[in-house]
Design a protein around this nucleic acid. Sequence first.
RNA 1: GGAUGGGUUCCCGAGCGGCCAAAGGGAGCGGACUGUAAAUCCGUUGUCGCAGACUACGAUGGUUCGAAUCCAUCCCCAUCCA
Length: 410
Amino acid sequence: MERNVYDILEERGFLKQCSHPEELRDLLGKEKVTFYIGFDPTADSLHIGHYVALMSMAHMQRAGHRPIALLGNGTAFIGDPSGKTDMRTLMSKEQLAYNASCFQKQMSRLLEFGEGKATIVYNGDWLYPLNFLDFMRDIGVYFSVNRMLTAECYKQRMERGLTFFEMSYMLMQSYDFLELNRRYGCVLQMGGDDQWSNILNGADLIRRKEQKPAFALTTALLTTSDGKKMGKTEKGAVWLDKEKCSVYDFYQYWRNVGDQDVEKCLSLLTFLPMDEVRRLGSLPGEQINEAKRVLAYTLTAQVHGEEEAKAAQSAAEALFANGADLSGIPTCVLSSDDISASGLRVTDLLVLAKLASSKSDARRLIEGGGVFINDEKVSTVSDILDATKIERDGAIIRKGKKSYCRIIKA
RNA sequence: GGAUGGGUUCCCGAGCGGCCAAAGGGAGCGGACUGUAAAUCCGUUGUCGCAGACUACGAUGGUUCGAAUCCAUCCCCAUCCA
């Protein structure tokens, strides 16, 4: 008898809250369960926060259950308000459709799609045609405002203000669950712990309206040991798309996680057996770097493939431990226009290499002594790179200790 | 709809006619120290070839030699009343 996936999720630290733990565990142990997680396609790539959710889906699928990835092109049309303070930006249906297709591509690396396997659905399919009055009569009546306001997530919002839309977001998400229950016999919704009340209410809706069992389960959010959100870089989120976050940067991000966070990352983001995870996580002192290498390599390989991961790893070894292969580090190819426009001034090159956000920024970096070319410190702001250095293998320009870019002539 | 208080740089938050590119904190970046970690200390954080100029304090106009600071209109937000 295989292990119950519920126990696996629990052991790996995914489990946060569950509406009916015993009942759900039993169910997962005895039959193929259809479940779903929703994703709002508000960007053209998934980021690492989504990845935890994908991992939980993958574990479920490996245990024989059937995942549905719901793409919220309907809900995202208005914008998800939870936790956001900034204005929700309105997105066109076309943009949402494009984003959704990007999501789908990235998901297929971890989930197996096909007949009887994982499926992708779009909630716009049923939300766009929805009639407001019907919806209120059929669904709205099941939601008590009093009860909603006692929910923790709304309590916090009460201080800053709450719009009617935010209240109804829960109804829409609950309705999604109901719709999936009817269409696909979906009985479980999973998601990040911040989604708890939305998910729970969906399950309740099914139980009340359909008189059928439905379950809610939330998984841990990726946070650092001091409770901050993980997956942020200077450029924003850690994206899964290598155009938005280079493989090298991706690798480096994990290579540099805090000591306290390695074990958690290994267990949530990789499939390594737990005793190995625990062994790596408890390595003392400097040896913990071994765990970080494993994490960085394994996760990069999962997301970008073995080849890319190897390149990133050897580039990292090359730069930090004087290895040889530099092919994997980010490279900036200069056209002859770039060369004449920049005059090969180091400040301009830093901008071209995306190591500095502006020339002013570049200047500050140089003044602060943080810029090196082929390991020689750039001492003055007005420095110009010798044109012969970008021939052949090019010049390695470095910002600080960890950011590199190879400058090479086209 | 009415009353009151607000909208400031990445975030929080001071400033309330010139000394403001704007205090302080957070976060980021760089340096030192290290283990490509954390903590700590130092520097830095609008743009442009630096001095200097330009663009910025919800939006648009106005008053002033001079506005983030005063006035008008508008838009948004919070609290209370309906």
